[in-house]
Design a protein around this nucleic acid. Structure first.
Length: 188
DNA sequence: ATGAAGATCCGG
DNA sequence: CGGATCTTCATT
């Protein structure tokens, strides 16, 4: 199927987040279908890091669309985002959940001997399962030998709802998911 | 220097 | 429901 390139991420954060649902993310021998994402907008979004972090604005300015933005949350969990850049609005897509497809053994080595749908059903869980950490921050991972994202023909019906775990701008329906997937971080 | 808040997860 | 544990930023 079709491999995503940087142009895919040269659209607004909502469009990118929505269109990623159903795509397949591959990372060093592991693959998972993207079943949950959230959009964060550089401008006008109080929940986005750019709202109160100069370093986040700087990061967008200095990196191309499609670059990985990885940071540690609560001093515990790495969260994986992709930079989005467009004329309307730039920002990030947060990867919140995957449905594991291959590399399950490696995921279980890192996550423990868990059921399939518990391996990547949350933003911190999926980075642990794939062994993603801060060393990937700033990487262009699209279309590489061991990493990338491809479209897939699987039919997905979309769920949309408010973002999770934030206090500001919590009402915006900027969370996207594959309806009914057992690998969601939470039900819609 | 110091403190507070934060896009989470797990166990009790 | 609370604690773990660290980065970023603002304030002293």
């Amino acid at each position: 199927m079709e491999e995503l390139d940087a142009d895919f991420f040269r659209r607004d954060p909502l469009t990118c987040s929505r269109d990623l649902i159903g795509c397949v993310f591959r990372w060093h021998g592991c693959e998972g279908r993207i079943v949950e994402t959230e959009a964060y907008a550089e401008h006008g979004d109080e929940a986005c890091h750019t709202w109160n972090r100069p370093s986040a604005r700087e990061f967008i300015a200095r990196h191309d669309a499609g670059t990985a933005y990885v940071y540690l949350n609560y001093g515990v969990h790495w969260l994986f985002n992709v930079v989005v850049k467009s004329a309307e609005n730039s920002g990030f897509v947060l990867f919140r959940a995957l449905e594991p497809i291959s590399g399950l053994e490696r995921m279980r080595e890192r996550r423990g001997d868990l059921p399939l749908h518990s391996l990547c059903s949350g933003p911190g869980k999926l980075t642990q399962a794939l062994d993603i950490d801060g060393s990937m921050h700033g990487n262009c991972f699209l279309g590489a030998e061991n990493t990338g994202i491809r479209r897939d023909s699987a039919e997905i019906s979309l769920s949309i709802g408010p973002r999770i775990g934030i206090s500001r701008a919590a009402d915006r329906p900027w969370r996207f998911g594959a309806a009914g997937s057992a690998s969601l971080s939470r039900r819609f």
